[in-house]
Design a protein around this nucleic acid. Structure first.
Lengths: 227, 227
DNA sequence: TTTTGTATGATTGGATCCAATCATACAAAA
DNA sequence: TTTTGTATGATTGGATCCAATCATACAAAA
């Protein structure tokens, strides 16, 4: 397989589990933009000390999910149309480039992995799985598309962008419609990818991201001018 | 000024100071790729406890300067031709895009800041300042070029790329030659930027980054095949 | 000789505790 | 009434300490 290998056995630290927990709460919208995250509150909630909570918050700051100010603690970062443009433009640069590199390196095994990932998303939508699972499968598909590029550094950047992009996707007023559109586009992406049609796959991915961004930004602009 | 405003008074935590210290050691090559960073050693060296050292290492991991494995500590990330390509390709996508956005938003004040930054680099080369100061001024120029894009999220990504790129630049066998070339290119970049010639500035910046990347990658390839 | 098991020191991850800073309320002065 | 100063609780940042894990050396068994 042409993908970057990962350690088989990943020991979970308390810090990592806390980071996942807080990230899930932020991405799921339980902690909205501007929400103060108190170290002691999280620590008590999870039955751990403040040390792993603080270390988790540092990681989330690097992901852009929280903003930390010295002696004032962590606040969930605010969402805005400007930020969404910043974020999706970065994805529009990186992802089509990475998918081009990926197609060239992708093994049949990699393509099989992508297909499996696409089918899983399809099945989850059919079953009406909850937003959290749908999101996970959506990003798993994107990751599977790009992973064979063998660019771990760029992939790390893209992964952090996925986390923030997810916060915006979860805000959408018509998620079912967006998911149906995304699934159809994933099918087309996979077909072009399987044919190893580099230019067409990149074009479809660009359109896939740009369309989603357009929806989100115009929705945000409406709510921002309303406020 | 059209740039993103920063807090005027930034309180330094011990963690932040330790992170800067370790980052400087890595970028300067004192801690080469593969070097084990022992928390207790750094703590004793700086007269602090291990807590801020650990927190600093987490930040450096997000920057890609170290790799942390559970219960095995932090190791300085390895440099390689493949990683350099990954890194510089990401810069080649992001920086020309950001400079295009920046030129549109740049105020006269911003352009004055860029010119000042360029002159400072020029003067430092003329004086033969040490590599650390030259690097700082080089990245300050790049940052000044891109900052008016008002894309804090993309800027944060680019800043982390600068840190890693710096490690490669410091490896160069003929730094004086590379610096003279960089300075000349900075001058041309600034002229095109001042004229607000979007396409030409982006083209020059692309060439500036690609040329540096080419030098570094071919040098790395030579040393890798030699080994 | 090679492999497997065990003991020991080194090191990391996390809990607890203390000091410094911040936010707030309230009092005093203009 | 508005501004400035002060006291107090809440909260964060960092030090110290303990438990868990890892790496190494050495012994025992195959």
């Amino acid at each position: 397989m042409a993908t970057t290998d990962k350690p088989l056995l990943q020991r979970q630290t308390v810090t990592a589990m806390v980071a996942e927990y807080i990230a899930a709460r932020i991405i799921g919208g339980d902690y909205p933009g501007g929400h103060q995250i108190r170290q002691e509150a999280i620590a008590a909630e999870l039955g751990v000390s403040r040390i792993p909570v603080r270390e988790a918050l540092l990681q989330l700051e690097a992901d852009g999910l929280v903003v930390i100010r010295t002696h004032r603690g962590a606040v969930v970062s605010e969402l805005s149309a400007d930020d969404a443009i910043d974020l999706f433009d970065a994805r529009l640069l990186l992802e089509p480039f990475l998918v081009e590199k990926a197609i060239v390196h992708a093994s049949d095994q990699d393509i099989a992995t992508i297909e499996k990932s696409m089918r899983a998303y399809e099945a989850a939508i059919a079953r009406g799985d909850d937003p959290k699972d749908l999101s996970r499968l959506n990003w798993a598909f994107h990751t599977a598309l790009l992973e064979p590029s063998m660019r771990p550094r760029s992939m790390a950047v893209v992964q952090t962008l996925f986390n923030s992009a997810d916060r915006y996707l979860r805000l959408q007023i018509e998620p079912a419609k967006a998911q149906a559109k995304a699934l159809q586009e994933h099918r087309e992406l996979f077909e072009a990818y399987r044919r190893r049609d580099v230019a067409e796959t990149a074009r479809l991915l660009r359109k896939h991201i740009a369309d989603a961004a357009g929806e989100i930004v115009s929705q945000l602009r409406r709510s921002e001018t309303a406020a």
